[in-house]
Computed example of a mutant assay.
Amino acid sequence: MKILRMNENIKNMFKELKREFPEDFGSYFGVEAMDYERNYDNDPDFDETFLCELVICYRRQTVRIRRYSEHDWEIEDENYIKSEYFREIGKILSIVMKHLGRIEFI
């Protein structure tokens, strides 16, 4: 029997990001989440409590958020972030962190 996992926080995060960035989402902006089992957010086996990596791409700027333990995370950019995108990337990170902060990680 397959156990259905609740991923409400990730779903709500995507809804809020799409609402805040309606023109950009999908064309200039995307977010991808992966759990420790290497399931992506669109996979039925994805489990947000096992989230290990989140990749945010905004207008050719990429930010990765990786988990090393239950409470230890790293945020890095793949290339230098252009100052013209500071405000938007800051807003994106604020939304992401708000929803990640609601997850009870395993």
Rank of each mutant, 00 (worst) to 15 (best):
Y28H: 11
N12G: 06
D35E: 02
L54S: 01
N39E: 02
L100D: 02
E88P: 08
D35N: 01
E88L: 02
V31L: 15
F14I: 15
S27F: 05
Y85T: 10
E76T: 11
K91Q: 13
I75M: 10
K11R: 05
G30I: 04
K2S: 14
F29I: 10
S27D: 08
E74P: 02
I75D: 03
E84T: 13
G30N: 14
D43Q: 09
N9A: 08
S83G: 09
E76D: 08
T49Q: 01
L4N: 13
R38S: 07
F46C: 02
Q61D: 12
R19F: 11
N12I: 04
E84F: 11
E8V: 14
E53K: 11
Y40L: 07
I75A: 08
M1S: 14
K91E: 15
R67T: 10
Y40P: 01
I10G: 01
D77E: 14
G30E: 12
G101E: 02
I95V: 10
Y36L: 13
H71E: 13
R102P: 00
F21M: 12
F105C: 06
L54Y: 01
S27Q: 09
S69R: 08
K91W: 10
E32K: 10
A33N: 01
E104M: 09
R60H: 07
F50M: 03
Y58C: 03
M6F: 05
I56S: 01
E32Q: 08
N7M: 00
D45Q: 15
I3K: 12
E32D: 04
E23F: 12
D24A: 11
R59N: 14
M34F: 02
Y58R: 04
Y36H: 04
I81T: 09
I95A: 05
R87E: 12
E76G: 03
P22V: 10
I95G: 06
I65A: 01
Y36A: 09
W73S: 06
S27R: 07
F50S: 02
I75P: 03
L4D: 13
F25D: 02
S27L: 06
I10H: 01
F86E: 12
T49G: 00
F14E: 08
E70W: 05
I106Y: 07
M1G: 15
V96W: 06
L51F: 05
E74I: 09
I75H: 03
E8P: 02
D43C: 13
T62E: 09
D72K: 15
Y68N: 14
H71N: 15
F105D: 05
M13Y: 00
F21E: 14
S94A: 13
P22M: 13
N42Y: 14
M1P: 06
N79K: 11
E37D: 04
L17P: 03
R64K: 15
N79C: 07
R60T: 08
R38P: 01
F14M: 08
H71Q: 08
N7I: 00
D24N: 12
L17M: 05
I106F: 09
F21H: 10
I106N: 09
N7Y: 00
D41V: 01
Y80S: 13
T62W: 11
I95K: 06
D47I: 02
L17S: 05
V55F: 04
T49P: 00
I89S: 03
D47E: 08
R59C: 11
G90C: 12
Y36I: 10
E76Q: 07
N9E: 15
R5W: 04
F105R: 07
K82W: 09
R64D: 12
